[in-house]
């Protein structure tokens, strides 16, 4: 039987090692991808079209496809998500309907992307006849992002102190004027954080996109064109062994983008925290 004090020291060491391993894994992945991929990235890689299925050339159409698809997803998910968050926080905080909405929002966030992919495929690609297109992909991704945006916006709106609302109402503001002029501006950094994390998720997503936007390797010219996002391009390059070099390059671009987006989101979050504490 170990003495409690010694046991505690031992446990602490073990837990520390576990934590260290986790952090190490993250840094290892980032380091490994960047080490192999950075050398591939130059202006030409970023700004030219792929040749020979991606064996040579760059990833420009994929960058464009990724950006446009994310934009559509965010443009649809943001009004829906922020609207829902406003309703859930400002209009009714309790009640049966609210708990049902909350439950479905939670569930929606747990649904695997492949299911969203199947759904988007049937609804948008086949049933509504949008075909494999940026529009189908963007709409389906928007649905997938919705829970994230609702949750972060809710948190941000709840963090706005009640006395701001009282002041605005006591100055003759209506509820909606109060929300638009006082609550939303104060909650903006938090809401923006959610939107930015949503952008990151839409960039990472592969399963949904491959089912709804397809994987055509051309520069898209309309919303009804199929496109290949960076994640999908990387998946195809790596899985079919087309070009390891370009796979690393694409992965590096992806990782750097995600890192920058996440860092920006945390910076915004901290501004929000600093503002209210």
């Amino acid at each position: 039987m170990l003495k409690p004090i010694l046991l505690e020291k031992l446990v602490k060491k073990i837990l520390f090692v576990g934590t260290a391993i986790t952090v190490f894994i993250l840094f290892f992945i980032i380091f490994y991808i960047l080490k192999n991929g950075l050398a591939v990235i130059d202006m030409e890689f970023l700004l030219s079209s792929p040749k020979d299925l991606g064996r040579a050339g760059g990833i420009f159409p994929c960058i464009v496809g990724t950006i446009v698809l994310s934009l559509i997803a965010i443009l649809i998910a943001t009004p829906l998500g922020v609207g829902a968050a406003i309703y859930l926080t400002e209009y009714t905080r309790k009640g049966r309907l609210i708990s049902i909405i909350r439950f479905f929002t939670e569930c929606l966030s747990g649904i695997p992307s492949i299911i969203f992919g199947l759904f988007g495929f049937v609804l948008f690609v086949v049933y509504l006849g949008f075909g494999w297109s940026i529009l189908s992909g963007g709409l389906t991704t928007a649905f997938m992002l919705l829970p994230t945006i609702i949750r972060t916006s809710e948190e941000a709106i709840k963090a706005v102190p009640d006395y701001y609302r009282e002041v605005s109402l006591s100055l003759g503001g209506t509820k909606w004027q109060t929300i638009v002029k006082v609550v939303l501006p104060s909650a903006l950094p938090g809401i923006a954080t959610g939107i930015i994390l949503g952008i990151a998720r839409s960039i990472e997503e592969t399963a949904v996109v491959i089912f709804t936007a397809g994987s055509v390797l051309h520069l898209p010219t309309s919303l009804f064109d199929s496109c290949r996002t960076m994640s999908v391009h990387f998946y195809i390059l790596a899985r079919e062994g087309i070009s390891m070099e370009n796979a690393y390059g694409t992965a590096a671009v992806l990782i750097i983008t995600i890192l920058l987006i996440n860092m920006f989101a945390y910076w915004l979050m901290h501004r929000l925290i600093a503002k209210y504490s």
Partner: peptide, 14 residues
């Protein structure tokens, strides 16, 4: 650690 969740799943597979 939460950044780990941000790495695309295709990168993990890779």
């Amino acid at each position: 650690i939460e950044l780990l969740a941000g790495i695309p799943s295709v990168v993990y597979g890779f």
